[in-house]
Design a protein around this nucleic acid. Structure first.
Lengths: 110, 110
DNA sequence: TATATTAATCGTAATATTGCAATATATAGA
DNA sequence: TCTATATATTGCAATATTACGATTAATATA
């Protein structure tokens, strides 16, 4: 249905899926990479850098902001977006722990 | 449009987004966690464990299989699904590297 | 105040995802 | 072969996502 039955999963499972979902789009990956590497982080730069329309970039920024990964400060008529390193590290730790899982030795199969 | 313009992004960006997208659903997170922790990994167990219909579970398994995260071996009339630890570690390394990014010191903002 | 610049929001179209019932397929055992 | 069991596939409905043009809001400057 395009709807996920979040009420039947644990908070941790929903949190992990929520993080992954926001990261599950190449435009948002590109935005994050650009914010990490560049000196300036004016929103308008992202529009030319990524190559998507301004409302589209704005929408992606909103989703990244909702998750807390980025923060924006007003710079005159522009807005400067940056990674929120503290929040990033926090989510990276949650996700990294999930990725670090090791298989239990199983007797029979695979 | 529900379509992402993947041709305008790098292979790495698409790969990262592709991994995250598959992980961006709590049912698939739950399936992965169950496969990691349990002794047995019969497909039918997942249906009762997760609480979604059998075709739905089968569909999620298919997506995990497409990404290479799991593999299934036929056990009589059942199928035994397991994590492909090697592939998991590989994807975890790719994603972990992305998560490990640190902010460049910026002069002006944020 | 008027204008230019920048970013957010609205409205909409196209496509994707999620989930399930019904059905198909495949294997094991009688 | 016939039946039971287990999984995959198909087809569909509901909802979500992505993208963009048009518009709005807010600020800076003339």
């Amino acid at each position: 249905m395009g709807i996920t039955k979040s009420e039947m999963f644990t908070a941790e499972q929903n949190a992990l899926a929520g993080i992954a979902k926001v990261l599950g789009n190449p435009a948002r990956i590109a935005i994050i990479q650009y914010l990490f590497k560049t000196e300036s982080c004016i929103c308008g730069d992202l529009v030319t850098e990524i190559g998507l329309a301004q409302p589209t970039i704005s929408q992606h920024l909103k989703e990244l902001k909702n998750l807390g990964l980025i923060k924006g400060t007003i710079e005159g008529t522009s807005i400067c977006y940056c990674i929120d390193q503290e929040k990033w590290d926090e989510l990276a730790a949650i996700f990294g722990k999930f990725l670090d899982q090791k298989e239990q030795p199983k007797g029979k199969c695979c």
